[in-house]
Amino acid sequence: MHPALQGLLTIVIGVGACLSYFWASNQFLDRVLFPAKGPNAGRNINRANMIRPWLFLFPALFALTLYLAYPVFETLRLSLTDRDQGGAFIGLANYTQMMGESKFWEAMGNNMLWLIVVPALSTAFGLLAAQLTDRISWGNIAKSLIFMPMAISFVGAAVIWKLVYDARPPDAEQIGVLNAIYVSLTGNDPQQWLTIPFWNNFFLMIVLVWIQTGFAMVILSAALRGIPEETVEAAIVDGANPFQIFFKIKVPQIMPTIMVVWTTITLVVLKIFDIVFAMTNGQWGTQVLANYMFDKLFRANDWGVGSASAIVIMLLVTPILVWNVRQARKEMR
């Protein structure tokens, strides 16, 4: 069968099965199990209403548990076992092996660099763009153009930026923008930007900053609009200059939103894989954790160390997880 038809069929079957499950289980509950008539009508209605939420929740809970909650524990278990010995428990041997690899420490170091640079630059550019576009007539168009990279895949972005970083032999015409500018300004030979140790990390980070700035801008612009007019007016009356208004009046008021943007981008950065995979594949000292893990899993076929590095990513995410859950619980009250 043609895969597209198979896809359509799956939609029909999948959606149909979901809907008929919900409908049939509700019918069963109301008609057969606890019918709302006869001598026990009142009690039956109450009982049915106690069970019904779980009918509604069951498919989602099942999928969430199977696809996200269970893997966390299973990965933890795998990271403590050895595949070659038939899954025998080997304690922390995978972790010690991983700690002994220089590639792992390179990945850790680079990830920390990413964690500092990308959220900071994205938020800063986003704040700048939000503040500037909010006060001009064509601001909305400008916003949607800056926001546009959000729709572009990391892989697509990798191709776009590889063209920017492209290098030709010294005597040929440069077709990468960066080298064209570099050669015409300095007269030096063109550079292979992605192979320059240490600095190539920044050339990769620029790609993610380019994508995430739009996100930061949209959220921060909404927050800036939510600032009460009076506070700004009061500052103007007191003779504050525009920069003072921005940094001393506006930014403190949207600090919680800045934190949310920062943590959201941090999450993206911790999981960053596609950009590095497509542009350098971790060569020339650009390895990051997610790509290191992919390498271990599918190239070296070492599930133990792969799981161990996944657990490291999980540990790095945990503070944000705890913070998010606490925030959500605070709202619920």
Binding site: A69, V72, S307
Partner: peptide, 23 residues
């Protein structure tokens, strides 16, 4: 109910890298 909501919020940030091998 509150516990389940917290559960969902927690899962929001679980990196899918963890899910690859087990799944």
């Amino acid at each position: 109910r509150a516990l389940l909501i917290a559960f969902v919020v927690g899962l929001l940030v679980v990196p899918l890298q963890l899910a690859l091998i087990p799944l």
